[in-house]
Computed example of a mutant assay.
Amino acid sequence: MIAYIIRRLLLFIPMAMGMVIVTFGLLLIIPGDPASVLLGQEASPEAIERLRDALGLNDPWYQRLWDYFVQLLSGDMGQSIFQNQPVATIILGRLGATIELSVAALLIATVVGVAMGVISAIRQGSIVDTITMFFAQLGVSMPVYWLSLLLMLAFAVQLGWLPSIGRGAPLPEALWAAITGRPGVLWDSLSHILLPALALSATPAAIISRLTRTSMLEMLREDFVRTAYAKGLRRPRVIVRHVLRNALLPVLSVIGLRFGMLLGGAVLTESIFAWPGLGQLTIAAISQRDLPLIQGIVLTFALIFALVNLVVDLLYAVVDPRVRLG
């Protein structure tokens, strides 16, 4: 097991370097000049050229890439052109909100998706199976921005049950406030996160439910299940301890992949619900051609995605010994 962990960690190093190179290369082909955006349309070509020299935009691409690597190794992600603050400071100020929303959506998607998949598998061919898979197909087909608007219209505008925009207190702070006798803070935080989390969780919940159903049906046909029934074990115990435990192995990998997708989907969801995370920051940085900030955000998303998949690989090896023996 230790050797497997070391191999995975060593593979993460060239992967991280590759992500830095790809991120840098993508920004080279983005149209628009940050110096022109910063100085405005009335600026003279000479002023724009002087600012480009000051920002290092006229340096050769390989020199800029090397300088960026050196900065990253020293813990510096650069300076935002428009906000005139360290990129790392800006991202850290918004990262917590995005991770909070993505984790909440992933928890909802996992619980709902696994429950729907299990129920659909054990009631295969019934009306329950048909209804469950209909909602799963609906979740896959509906765009996140459209579902966000529908949820906002229904629960915020028409019913007035939940707020439509903004964020309450961070969930860790809200939980502590509830423990210390202020449950209203927790409710306010949960009420703000519920709608964007539901909108963001619909597609992964549908995918997880369909995969769980397929995996459960395969496990139910295995010989060890018939053996368990022949030993006189009750059906709930067979389903939970034998079938579901083995059926969740492929689902575990998908959950890790979907977390990375949730980070990308959060850009749209955060914009619709005015959630103060990296999504809004990304749109603002792109509109301003703030290259260092865009570079830092994209790299942050990529590193989180890679780290989550690394954790999933390690968990998969813990659950299934055949992985680390291969």
Rank of each mutant, 00 (worst) to 15 (best):
L217G: 01
F273Q: 05
A169I: 05
W66P: 00
W66D: 09
G168Q: 10
V318P: 04
G113P: 00
L198T: 08
G232I: 04
G56W: 11
D67S: 13
D223Y: 11
L10E: 04
E270L: 14
F12Q: 05
I131S: 03
S120D: 01
T300F: 11
A247P: 02
S271F: 07
G18E: 11
L293H: 05
R289W: 05
Q83G: 00
L307G: 09
L55M: 15
V243M: 08
Y316S: 15
D53C: 01
Q137V: 08
V298L: 14
W275A: 04
A154M: 14
V254W: 01
A47N: 07
I6Q: 12
S36P: 07
T214P: 07
L150S: 04
A177H: 05
V311T: 11
L211W: 02
Q85V: 10
V157G: 02
R213T: 09
A199W: 11
D67A: 14
R182D: 15
W61V: 12
P292G: 02
S74P: 01
I48D: 05
A202N: 10
S141R: 12
W146Q: 10
M77E: 01
L281C: 03
P34I: 03
M15L: 15
L195W: 10
L51A: 03
R7P: 00
D290L: 08
I131N: 02
V240L: 14
L252R: 02
T203F: 12
L211R: 06
L263G: 00
D188G: 11
L149M: 06
P60R: 09
A115E: 14
Q41M: 10
Q124W: 04
G166Y: 13
I48N: 09
I286W: 04
L65E: 03
S287V: 08
